[in-house]
């Protein structure tokens, strides 16, 4: 058991293993995203209240879910790195943070754009949008802290501590923002909350969510491999790999 973990956690082991894993995730991501998009854009019926503008849901909700999962993934990687000193976990964390921030931005942007036809304004201090905005700042903080250290290992460990502190705070932030929102804006119409969605509407949404997750995993594997090449460039196996090509 420990041998397997050790092998998978070593940069070379991960590099080889992820090479075999990667194509499957890319294939699944492309398949799911294509089917989900076509189904969502072409075949899903228009919403009886919001018309065709509800089709934004197929990018808004997956992006928002993925952004939050990316932060949790970041914190899990941080724990693995700090406790077991597995460097690959930190490399994965360093590539998850920018993509998580990008997904948070997508969720915010699509939410704002969706707000125009629904609320008649670009920005409403809706609980979900507000917590996404705070999440974006948390991502920025982690990326900036990692970059501020000249010594890479200190930057890694500092960013890991901040990721763990952040993930403990996220539920507290989420609930306090929700509480604050209900206090100040009672019973606003929330875009993503609907009584019951027919299957032909939520099925494509499910496909899109799965597709986003597969895309995220595939991209993280790909960029972690890049990061391994960058940080391990002096190791013998990397040099043999380069010479062999």
């Amino acid at each position: 058991m420990w041998r397997i973990i050790h092998q998978f956690g070593s940069p070379k082991g991960f590099y080889d293993f992820s090479a075999r894993l990667q194509p499957w995730f890319w294939a699944a991501a492309v398949l799911l995203l294509l089917t989900g998009s076509l189904w969502g854009l072409l075949y899903a019926p228009a919403d009886y209240q919001q018309g065709d503008s509800f089709r934004i849901i197929y990018v808004h909700v997956p992006a928002a879910l993925l952004a939050q999962s990316a932060f949790v993934g970041l914190a899990v990687a941080a724990v693995i790195f700090l406790v077991w000193k597995i460097k690959v976990a930190d490399m994965a964390a360093s590539v998850m943070a920018p993509f998580g921030a990008a997904m948070t931005f997508v969720a915010l942007f699509s939410g704002a754009v969706w707000g125009v036809p629904t609320w008649g304004t670009w920005w409403v201090w809706d609980a979900r949008l507000t917590s996404m905005l705070i999440l974006l700042f948390l991502f920025f903080g982690i990326i900036a802290l990692r970059g501020a250290f000249t010594h890479r290992d200190s930057g890694s460990r500092a960013a890991s501590v901040l990721a763990i502190v952040g993930v403990i705070n996220i539920p507290i932030i989420k609930y306090s923002v929700e509480w604050w929102n209900t206090l100040h804006q009672p019973a606003t119409f929330s875009v993503t909350e609907r009584p019951s969605m027919p299957a032909e509407m939520w099925m494509p949404l499910l496909l899109m969510v799965l597709g986003f997750y597969c895309f995220f995993i595939a991209l993280t594997l790909m960029r972690t491999r890049n990061e391994i090449l960058r940080r391990e460039s002096n190791k013998r196996w990397v040099r043999e790999l380069v010479r062999g090509q």
Partner: peptide, 16 residues
């Protein structure tokens, strides 16, 4: 035309 919501829908999808 997206039922009149073209700019919103395509902007969100395009950025993504």
């Amino acid at each position: 035309a997206m039922g009149g919501y073209a700019p919103y829908v395509w902007a969100a999808w395009g950025v993504t």
